[in-house]
Nucleic acid binder design. Structure first.
Lengths: 178, 178
DNA sequence: ACCTGAACACCGTTCAAGT
DNA sequence: ACCTGAACACCGTTCAAGT
């Protein structure tokens, strides 16, 4: 028992830091959240964060991983629904992470770790959506561009709040069989 | 002559600062460009910038206005072409401003002036594209969602570099009559 | 009116020192 | 192995002082 208490504590403390950062980055923005704010919200010192994460961008990646894992787990519990409903549900659920989306784009060009996360995120999304579109009867040749357009539209809707009516119209047009 | 020399100088110096900031923000990114770098590139002191602009975000808005004006003037000279060609041309021309796009999204939530610029930019784009789509025979009810999807896709292509082939496929699918 | 140098509060990050 | 306080270089911004 004493053998594995340390690693467990370590995991717990790391998780507390990530949890604090997730809330603050999501609600106040990455740039507007200093590491000292994250530290005091997590009950540690600023320098302690550097024992768990290489730098602020590495902490951001940990937050992104956490949010993505949670979202995927949640999505897995959702019943199968028409494709348009699913997209609408996803946008609804993810809208609050708008600030994470914009900061990923802003820092992807600068911080290698964030860029790598961004790339693999889109690879994953593409793979998941291809299934949905194939099932919906989209011609094989259109699958890749269609998933890309969908990803862009979902990101666009997340980062450009619309009236409920306009949002529905966009998703309906996007998913309408052609 | 002496009466209007001062205002003219003022305009010139302001333009030099904006020009320096445009290059640096575009190539190195907004966050990575300190005001002291802008200042020395423009041959002034950091504090001088504050005589011309309220803060760093106001300078960003001036850069955005400048880039947009130039782009619109350039576009006006282009011959009328098929809609798909026009979108492709626009993405090609604007790709180098990727870092401006991402920083506008990142700061729109924080800096009111940037948020206002972003809103009016999309209003302008919507108005311009509605014309194009109406001319291409898109049904009246689909015009608004269609312009919104197009804006999201253009932004997506600008901020997510693709192979030339994939980019073409996306634009072709987007503009294909339905 | 325009420009500057010095100063301020804050930031991310490092590091020697503790346990 | 883990955590800290003090320090570093830098940042955006302010302001009293110059012309």
């Amino acid at each position: 028992m004493p053998r594995n208490r340390r690693p467990q504590d370590r995991e717990e403390k790391r998780a507390e830091i990530v949890a604090a950062a997730t809330t603050l980055f999501t609600e106040s923005g990455f740039d507007q959240t200093s590491l000292s704010k994250v530290a005091s919200a997590a009950g540690v010192t600023t320098t302690t964060i550097y024992w768990y994460f290489a730098d602020k961008d590495a902490l951001l990646v940990a937050v992104l991983d956490d949010v993505l894992d949670t979202a995927l787990a949640e999505a897995a519990l959702e019943p199968e629904r028409p494709w348009a409903e699913q997209v609408l549900w996803a946008v609804d659920r993810l809208e609050r992470f708008e600030r994470l989306v914009t900061v990923v784009h802003a820092r992807a060009a600068t911080a290698e770790a964030v860029g790598a996360w961004h790339d693999s995120f889109h690879t994953l999304m593409d793979a998941m959506m291809v299934e949905g579109y194939r099932g919906a009867g989209v011609p094989e040749a259109d699958l890749v561009p269609m998933t890309r357009i969908s990803a862009f539209v979902v990101e666009g809707l997340m980062t450009h709040p619309q009236t409920e009516h306009d949002r529905r119209a966009v998703i309906e047009l996007l998913t309408r069989p052609r």
